[in-house]
Structure formats: structure tokens, C-alpha cells
């Protein structure tokens, strides 16, 4: 996609970048404020991770141009994300399984 950029489309991109920047700043403030809310730990974790995921999706989608990326890259990343979750959750599940003996 990089060679086919016309001047107009780049300027359109720049407008999007500024908007994303604003959204990221607002979300950062919201995360900090949310941490002062009087909620249970699991709710706090849920909330913080949701906000972080939204921010991460904005960065990955717009700054890293993932929303218009080629299918090879998307599929490699999906594979990686799958194994990422395998690596996070399988040890955890087997740990809690240990604890229940």
C-alpha cells in the first residue's frame, strides 16, 4: 500500500492520527481515574485490561496500519496471538489444577 499513497490520502491519514492521539490521551486519563473507583479486584483488572486493549487496538490498527494490512501479515499475527494466549492460559490452568489436588 505504501507506494500508492496520494497526497490527499496521506493528509486524510494525518487527520486520523491526530484523532487517535486524542482518543489515546483520553483513555489514559480514564484508566488512571478508573483505578480510584471502589470496585473489586477482578472488576478492576477487567476494566483496566479492556481499556488497555482498546488503546492497543487503536495503536495497532491506525499507527501500524493493521486495518488495511495484507492478509499474510494478519494471519501470522493471528497465529502469534493464539499461541500467546496458549502460553498465558495453559500454565495458569495447570497451576490452578495443581492447587486443587
Amino acid at each position: 500500500m505504501s507506494t500508492e499513497h496520494s497526497k490527499e490520502s496521506i493528509q486524510e491519514h494525518i487527520r486520523v492520527y491526530i484523532m487517535v492521539f486524542g482518543a489515546l490521551a483520553v483513555l489514559t486519563v480514564i484508566t488512571v481515574l478508573a483505578s480510584f473507583l471502589n470496585v473489586s479486584t477482578s472488576e478492576a483488572i477487567f476494566l483496566a485490561l479492556i481499556i488497555a486493549s482498546v488503546k492497543a487496538s487503536l495503536v495497532a490498527g491506525y499507527f501500524m496500519h493493521l486495518i488495511s494490512e495484507k492478509s499474510i501479515i494478519i494471519s501470522i499475527l493471528l497465529l502469534t496471538v493464539f499461541f500467546f494466549f496458549v502460553m498465558i492460559f495453559l500454565p495458569l490452568i495447570s497451576y490452578t489444577d495443581h492447587a486443587n489436588i
Binding site: T31, V32, S35, A44, A48, L49, I51, A52, K55, A56
Partner: peptide, 13 residues
């Protein structure tokens, strides 16, 4: 992006 996750995970939770 890594920092976006590090920040809540280390500082806020």
C-alpha cells in the same frame, strides 16, 4: 503498545 499494557498491569492493579 507494550507500555500501554505495562502501565495498568504494574502500576494500577
Amino acid at each position: 503498545l507494550v507500555w500501554i499494557f505495562l502501565f495498568p498491569v504494574l502500576y494500577l492493579l
